[in-house]
Design a protein around this nucleic acid. Structure first.
Length: 205
DNA sequence: TCGATAATAT
DNA sequence: TATATTATCG
């Protein structure tokens, strides 16, 4: 039940996806469908529609205990939902890759329950992703400008694949360009205990 | 203390 | 196997 509920949340963002043409053409020029395919860009799609944002927070971890044994609380595995990743990219876009340090990213995301290490880990994976991306790009077209570009700004994942592989896109018609929502960034990190997915398709990596 | 990288666990 | 978590180093 939990898994389905979770998957339902994911489906919502994709359900409200705008047209690919509405997205910034820059990424489409940068990342070709083949490239996206190379990274196995795929998202679980579910025939259900749920509200964009997941239910309230799980509020794991209670650090309101100065003394006593605090840390024996096992932190469930954090799952980086597309929404979380969007906030992550949003922070990166605003801060810039140069100033994109876990701490600042964490502060910018303002996600309850999210720790700096979570962001650090995700940032590590993301940088690894960009690294591979750059490698492929420079190897393909041998263009150095792409190298600078990907190094100076976060590369949004606006991949589109007709075969079913789809990438991340804005929820309500917004893309990953620097756009600060009014004040609706009250989001909580959701974590699931057990994967329950035998071969869960990776979100973007 | 923080950030980056490597190693480990699930 | 891929991912997040943990550990180690600068």
């Amino acid at each position: 039940m939990r898994e389905e509920d979770h998957m339902n949340r994911i489906s919502s963002w994709e359900d409200q996806l705008p047209s690919p043409e509405e997205l910034t053409p820059l990424t489409q020029t940068l990342i070709t469908p083949d490239l996206a395919k190379a990274f196995d860009i795929n998202i679980n799609r579910n025939p259900s529609s749920n509200p964009p944002l997941p239910p309230p927070s799980s509020e794991f971890i209670d650090s309101g205990r100065p003394d006593e044994q605090a840390p024996p609380v096992k932190r469930p595995r954090l799952m980086w939902t597309p929404e979380l990743h969007k906030l992550f990219l949003d922070a990166l876009t605003h801060l810039g890759m140069e100033n994109a340090v876990p701490k600042k990213i964490l502060q910018h995301m303002r996600v309850d329950g999210l720790t700096r290490q979570n962001v650090s880990s995700h940032l590590q994976k993301y940088r690894l992703f960009l690294k591979r991306l750059r490698g492929l790009l420079s190897s393909e077209c041998g263009n150095a400008s792409l190298d600078h570009l990907s190094a100076s700004m976060p590369v949004p994942h606006h991949f589109l694949d007709q075969d079913g592989g789809l990438s991340f896109q804005g929820e309500g018609g917004e893309n990953y360009l620097p756009s600060m929502p009014p004040g609706n960034r009250q989001m909580a990190a959701v974590a699931v205990e057990t994967p329950a997915h035998p071969a869960a398709a990776p979100a973007w990596g």
